[in-house]
Lab assay of single mutants.
Amino acid sequence: HNLTITQGKLFFHYNPKLCLSEIHKMEEVSGTKGRQERNDIALKTNGDQASCENELLKFSYIRTSFDKILLRWEPYWPPDFRDLLGFMLFYKEAPYQNVTEFDGQDACGSNSWTVVDIDPPLRSNDPKSQNHPGWLMRGLKPWTQYAIFVKTLVTFSDERRTYGAKSDIIYVQTDATNPSVPLDPISVSNSSSQIILKWKPPSDPNGNITHYLVFWERQAEDSELFELDYCLKGLKLPSRTWSPPFESEDSQKHNQSEYEDSAGECCSCPKTDSQILKELEESSFRKTFEDYLHNVVFVPRKTSSGTGAEDPRPSRKRRSLGDVGNVTVAVPTVAAFPNTSSTSVPTSPEEHRPFEKVVNKESLVISGLRHFTGYRIELQACNQDTPEERCSVAAYVSARTMPEAKADDIVGPVTHEIFENNVVHLMWQEPKEPNGLIVLYEVSYRRYGDEELHLCVSRKHFALERGCRLRGLSPGNYSVRIRATSLAGNGSWTEPTYFYVTDYLDVPSNIA
């Protein structure tokens, strides 16, 4: 807008934040220059609390790290170098490059900038070799853009010569660093050979998330399962459950009422301010606690030095998902009996873990797994792929695949051998790939016309006998059925096997 004052003059007093240069501009645009008398524009009460600059400061050096910015700028000295009290560095987070010096300023003089007072450097006698002032900004957020400017702080001049310097606002972004852990990993099994893994992005990506790394490792069953005799009275049979499938998407929606109208769909109840505040506090606490764990609990591995020492970490090797089922080394339970199943799973520490690289999504279907087997899954978020990966501390989750139908069934015939004193040795093959492992066998036998009897055969007993022995049988026709019990439950009964026990007292003698 054009402003013209045809008559009258300007009068400025007691404006401590208004620089004289701005008042002189007002004289020019209003056409009143030359009308004012000496005392109409006070030299001592206008701009006496402001830094009124008329020179431009330029930054000469900028260096960044993930949490620091090192700045240096060209030296500046007023005509009387004693008038320079120091520099004021202003900075704040700036997602967009549209910041002005006066953003967030209120009537009390406060604003949204963080201000650092910096002492002037030592003055050199040689004007050509003056030290460049600077400042190291610490405690910054990774991968965050900051708006920065600097200006001088000078003393009051009796001659009211307006001098000083100020830089333009520059924008500097800190470097990326390792992201925080992925949030809320959930693993479920939808079949006997697959596990579905879902997660949420890290709360602090500290860069642009480029991919996720998912490692999985087959877990050995508890050692007590191999040692305890679950045929003993009072000892509860062990059981394991597989990871249940995901709930429906509708039930997972946030901010939804727990109660549904019987007449149909209901609208979600909005969260109160107290609920939102509580969630923010919980989120802040979780982030602080995660940072504490990362800094205190997890110790970084030592990389190899120039002395030739090897990095103890196993090298990563990509495998196809079809090879995942046989990740671990199978060892027989008892070496003397080769027909026992290889369900003991000690994992070799030198073995390469299978892994998958996930790009542009937060889910993965891990296939080719062994049925009813526990897996430990390790999830890392990465925001750099080359020249070397920059990934987060791992988040861990466990899951067990679903049982395989008929995996616990005894394959092959049940054979028998009759000894003296009416002892019958029953023999059968253990299931080759049971659900988890076989903890015991149930032997059901009966003599024709009598009630059915049951015998429990422990895992250890089966390994020693290759089956079991029935003792003290009365003469007669017998039928026997056997079924295995694994961590997933009972298998199917075998087809009945028949044998006849004679009275050993009636056996004919070869003595003449």
Rank of each mutant, 00 (worst) to 15 (best):
residue 391 C to R: 02
residue 475 P to Q: 11
residue 326 N to V: 05
residue 444 S to V: 15
residue 380 Q to M: 09
residue 383 N to R: 03
residue 222 D to A: 12
residue 274 S to W: 10
residue 255 N to W: 15
residue 241 T to W: 03
residue 235 L to Q: 08
residue 243 S to A: 13
residue 349 P to Y: 13
residue 295 N to V: 11
residue 402 M to T: 06
residue 249 E to M: 04
residue 398 S to D: 08
residue 472 G to F: 08
residue 249 E to V: 12
residue 325 G to S: 14
residue 403 P to A: 08
residue 424 V to K: 01
residue 423 V to M: 07
residue 480 V to H: 00
residue 318 R to E: 11
residue 301 R to K: 13
residue 441 Y to K: 00
residue 419 F to S: 06
residue 295 N to T: 08
residue 332 P to T: 06
residue 207 G to D: 02
residue 212 Y to S: 05
residue 488 A to M: 10
residue 268 S to W: 03
residue 460 K to Y: 06
residue 209 I to W: 03
residue 265 E to N: 11
residue 372 F to V: 01
residue 252 Q to E: 14
residue 454 H to N: 04
residue 365 V to T: 05
residue 438 I to R: 01
residue 394 A to E: 08
residue 436 G to P: 04
residue 315 S to K: 13
residue 224 E to L: 05
residue 260 E to K: 01
residue 355 F to P: 06
residue 458 S to W: 07
residue 491 G to F: 02
residue 309 A to K: 13
residue 495 E to M: 02
residue 311 D to M: 13
residue 247 E to A: 10
residue 439 V to E: 07
residue 499 F to M: 03
residue 468 C to N: 02
residue 502 T to D: 06
residue 256 Q to N: 04
residue 396 Y to L: 09
residue 400 R to Q: 04
residue 282 E to A: 10
residue 315 S to L: 11
residue 324 V to A: 12
residue 414 V to D: 00
residue 394 A to G: 14
residue 368 G to K: 06
residue 223 S to F: 01
residue 212 Y to R: 00
residue 462 F to I: 03
residue 509 S to V: 13
residue 299 V to S: 06
residue 323 D to N: 12
residue 313 R to L: 03
residue 282 E to M: 04
residue 338 P to Y: 12
residue 268 S to Q: 14
residue 429 Q to K: 11
residue 432 K to I: 07
residue 455 L to V: 11
residue 454 H to G: 15
residue 239 S to T: 13
residue 433 E to C: 14
residue 493 W to T: 01
residue 479 S to I: 06
residue 356 E to C: 11
residue 480 V to A: 05
residue 334 V to R: 12
residue 449 G to Q: 13
residue 304 S to F: 15
residue 337 F to Q: 11
residue 360 N to Q: 08
residue 444 S to D: 07
residue 447 R to P: 12
residue 486 S to D: 01
residue 250 D to M: 11
residue 307 T to C: 07
residue 406 K to F: 08
residue 415 T to R: 12
residue 226 F to Y: 09
residue 326 N to A: 12
residue 455 L to C: 11
residue 449 G to I: 06
residue 306 G to Q: 14
residue 261 D to L: 09
residue 390 R to K: 06
residue 389 E to P: 14
residue 353 R to V: 12
residue 285 F to Y: 12
residue 207 G to Q: 01
residue 380 Q to R: 08
residue 361 K to I: 07
residue 301 R to M: 10
residue 442 E to H: 07
residue 212 Y to I: 09
residue 498 Y to N: 06
residue 394 A to P: 07
residue 279 E to S: 09
residue 355 F to Q: 07
residue 423 V to R: 11
residue 228 L to E: 15
residue 276 I to A: 08
residue 447 R to S: 07
residue 441 Y to I: 01
residue 226 F to Q: 06
residue 291 D to Y: 12
residue 509 S to M: 07
residue 259 Y to S: 13
residue 353 R to T: 04
residue 306 G to C: 10
residue 445 Y to P: 01
residue 462 F to T: 03
